[in-house]
Design a protein around this nucleic acid. Structure first.
Length: 104
DNA sequence: AAACTGACTGTTA
DNA sequence: GTAACAGCCAGTT
């Protein structure tokens, strides 16, 4: 039998890694898929503490308004990562959810 | 073990 | 459309 534990964090890793290239998902949506519809904040918490060098596409996660929740340099990094895969992002971090959202 | 934190969200004004 | 508030809950101290 498997030794893996079914932690919230691991489910988040799994779900975020499944967001397709060039698309985005919201914190709430990921929390929902992870089985905790009210834990959107925790999704951010998990992503914030990602191990250095993680390959997880954390930049594909935005808030429900279709806006990057990070600020300053972090916002710039996320915007650049998204634009690099073809997602248009305004200077303030706004993204067209209708167009790029995963799981419409 | 208890308190604190916050990459969120829905409601209300 | 924006702003303030409160509830939320896994992770960290």
């Amino acid at each position: 039998m498997s030794s893996e534990q079914d932690t919230f964090q691991q489910r988040i890793y799994h779900i975020v890694s499944a967001i397709p290239y060039g698309h985005v998902a919201t914190y709430g949506e990921i929390a929902d898929l992870a089985g905790s519809v009210r834990a959107a904040r925790q999704v951010g918490g998990v992503l914030k503490r990602l191990p250095k060098g993680s390959k997880l596409p954390w930049h594909r996660v935005v808030n429900r308004m279709g806006r990057i929740s990070l600020t300053g340099l972090d916002l710039d990094r996320q915007r650049l990562a998204l634009e690099a895969e073809g997602v248009t992002v305004s200077p303030e971090g706004d993204i067209d959810l209708q167009r790029y959202r995963w799981q419409r």
